[in-house]
Amino acid sequence: MQRVNMIMAESPGLITICLLGYLLSAECTVFLDHENANKILNRPKRYNSGKLEEFVQGNLERECMEEKCSFEEAREVFENTERTTEFWKQYVDGDQCESNPCLNGGSCKDDINSYECWCPFGFEGKNCELDVTCNIKNGRCEQFCKNSADNKVVCSCTEGYRLAENQKSCEPAVPFPCGRVSVSQTSKLTRAETVFPDVDYVNSTEAETILDNITQSTQSFNDFTRVVGGEDAKPGQFPWQVVLNGKVDAFCGGSIVNEKWIVTAAHCVETGVKITVVAGEHNIEETEHTEQKRNVIRIIPHHNYNAAINKYNHDIALLELDEPLVLNSYVTPICIADKEYTNIFLKFGSGYVSGWGRVFHKGRSALVLQYLRVPLVDRATCLRSTKFTIYNNMFCAGFHEGGRDSCQGDSGGPHVTEVEGTSFLTGIISWGEECAMKGKYGIYTKVSRYVNWIKEKTKLT
């Protein structure tokens, strides 16, 4: 034993070699072989497995989906700052455009905790909710729209109204504003409101030439003092309507412009014939205590009207009353817009006519005020429907199939267009061939041609 100890002390290297040989010859039971080890760690190889990531292109799944990435790591994937920024906006807080917040056709661009709407022409605001041009839906104005110097929408209202708090709607500024039905039992019968379409306001006024200088022999019209197929109006439903009495009662109609003036057809009036105007009328054979009678003290036909040349060209006249009318729910003026808007309103496509005229061709006159909704007829169809001249200051309205029309005794009465609950004068009943005849239409004086003249002559002093 002493000898062994001496050998170990003198030859430590020998001992180490012996131990190493023993270990190498022993069977290893701690580690699995290569094949079995792979069965336990069965993990798919990654895209760049075996390579240094710093030297390969980034992978979106590896960089940002398996674990949260930084902007720089995302930049490695896209290799483009702009594309990385677009991805980053949604990656950080989701897609803010998912709810489609942009209105009126706006395009949404996502941002971090926010979004941006790219608005089409005519709109602005956070969600493109603000109209900035009158060309689109009248700028959301209830009545009139004008573009300011910086191309912003400025709404306005006709006389007797003021802008509401929203700067879009119009509200009454006087007790009985024009064009409004205020009798409670008839307010439910107000005709369907007309909503502004998209309009090209630059070209809204037709490029028409008034044929002022045409000389033409007097034409022989049949029954051209021209509501057939209409309905009984309720008291106060058309408070701007008046009836004219002269040699015979209810020979023509008219509309209240203001307390002192009536507008009617020029062919209705004769110099030297006494005319009485009755406002607030409903049943011409009954006294309903809503009527107001006034005498006409002055007749002003349009300066281009000449019955000797043509009885229905420039067929418009103004009547001055001896005493002002007292405005109330049964006696209310009709609204008159400017030339541009009167023309736009007419193009809405349908209007209402009213009167006490004959209820059928050569038949009896109506006792109760009649009204009828009539569609506008395109000019080409209008011209083809008659052998008589249709001037540019006239328009056609009615039904091709016949059966409904204005008729004798309705002449001078109103053709009105309702705009968001307020009625505007767009025409004056003038003439036609018979009444409600198939293929024939009622012919009306186009008020847009005469609004400046009306307003100039009827100013209240």
Rank of each mutant, 00 (worst) to 15 (best):
I210Q: 11
G357D: 10
S156G: 07
T445Q: 05
V296H: 01
H302G: 02
K109I: 06
A164C: 04
L367Y: 11
L14G: 04
E259K: 07
T84W: 04
G179Y: 01
V183A: 13
L19N: 02
N304A: 09
G363W: 05
S70N: 13
K146Q: 12
V278S: 07
E159D: 12
I7V: 14
E281V: 14
V269Y: 04
E323K: 13
Q143I: 02
N127H: 11
V257P: 00
E86Q: 15
T81D: 10
E27I: 02
G442K: 07
T461F: 10
S385W: 12
K347E: 10
P197C: 05
W118I: 02
Y371W: 14
N138K: 05
K339G: 07
T287Y: 12
N147M: 11
H267G: 04
E82H: 06
E10T: 08
S99Q: 15
H34P: 10
A233L: 06
E193D: 14
K339M: 15
D110I: 05
I390T: 09
T158Y: 04
G349M: 04
N100P: 01
K126R: 14
A279L: 02
A307I: 08
V153L: 08
C382Q: 02
P120T: 05
W261A: 01
G409P: 09
H289L: 06
I297C: 05
E116K: 02
S148Y: 08
F345H: 02
L425H: 01
V451D: 01
V377W: 03
F399V: 14
E124Q: 06
Y371F: 13
I7F: 09
S114A: 11
K89G: 14
C178D: 01
R180T: 04
S329R: 11
C252H: 02
Q408P: 10
E418R: 09
N80T: 14
E270V: 12
G403F: 09
R384P: 07
G13W: 05
R449T: 12
N59S: 09
T84V: 06
P375A: 14
E79K: 15
A164Y: 03
K440H: 14
T194R: 10
C97L: 01
K457L: 11
R384T: 13
G357P: 07
E433Q: 14
V331T: 05
G229L: 08
A266Y: 02
T417W: 00
N5H: 13
H400R: 14
P172Y: 05
Y444V: 05
L369T: 15
I344V: 10
L244E: 01
T85I: 07
P177G: 03
V77R: 13
Q219W: 09
N127D: 06
R191G: 13
W261Q: 00
W118C: 00
K247P: 13
F31R: 11
L20C: 06
F121T: 04
Q241F: 15
P235D: 04
I275K: 02
V451T: 05
S184P: 09
I136S: 13
R83K: 07
I256E: 00
A397H: 01
V56W: 03
L319H: 01
H314Y: 09
E72I: 15
C396P: 01
N343T: 09
P375W: 06
S107C: 04
R379Q: 10
N166S: 04
R449Q: 12
G355I: 04
S350T: 14
D338S: 10
V174A: 08
N222M: 11
E208Y: 14
V273I: 09
R191N: 12
